[in-house]
C-alpha cells in the first residue's frame, strides 16, 4: 500500500470499518438492531481484495487483523490469521491464473 498513490482511501475505509465495529448502539435501541450488524471489516477486506488485488495483499490484511485483535482484546494473531486466510481464499478464487502459472 503506497500512501502517495491513493492508498489513503483503503486506509480510510479500514478505519471506518473499525469504527463501525466498535461503535455501540444508543441505550434505547431495540435489541434486534444489534443482530443485524454485519462484520464490517471482513466486508471491506473482501472488497479491496477483489477490486485491487495488486494493492491489498495478505500482509495488509494480516496487519489489519493484528489491530482488530487489540481492538477486541483477543489473543494476538487470531484475527490476523483469519483475515490473511480470507484474503488468500478470495484471491485464489478470483485470480486462479496468477497463483497457478
Amino acid at each position: 500500500m503506497n500512501p502517495t498513490r491513493g492508498g489513503w482511501v483503503i486506509l480510510l475505509t479500514l478505519v471506518f470499518a473499525m469504527l463501525l465495529a466498535v461503535v455501540h448502539l444508543p441505550a434505547g435501541a431495540p435489541v434486534w438492531l444489534g443482530w443485524l450488524r454485519p462484520s464490517w471489516l471482513v466486508l471491506v477486506v473482501f472488497y479491496w481484495v477483489m477490486a485491487l488485488p495488486h494493492r491489498f495483499g495478505m500482509i495488509t490484511a494480516w496487519i489489519t487483523g493484528l489491530l482488530v485483535d487489540v481492538l477486541y482484546a483477543d489473543p494476538l494473531g487470531v484475527n490476523g490469521f483469519c483475515l490473511a486466510a480470507l484474503t488468500y481464499v478470495t484471491w485464489s478464487e478470483n485470480h486462479p491464473r496468477e497463483l497457478r502459472p
Binding site: W62, V70, P75, L76, G77, V78, G80, F81, A84
Partner: peptide, 23 residues
C-alpha cells in the same frame, strides 16, 4: 509464513506476557 508467524504470536501471547509492549 504469515500463518506460522500468527501461530507463533498466538502461542506466545496466550502463554506469557512477553508481547505486552507490542500490544
Amino acid at each position: 509464513a504469515l500463518a506460522i508467524v500468527s501461530i507463533l504470536l498466538l502461542a506466545v501471547d496466550v502463554n506469557s506476557r512477553l508481547l505486552q509492549p507490542l500490544r
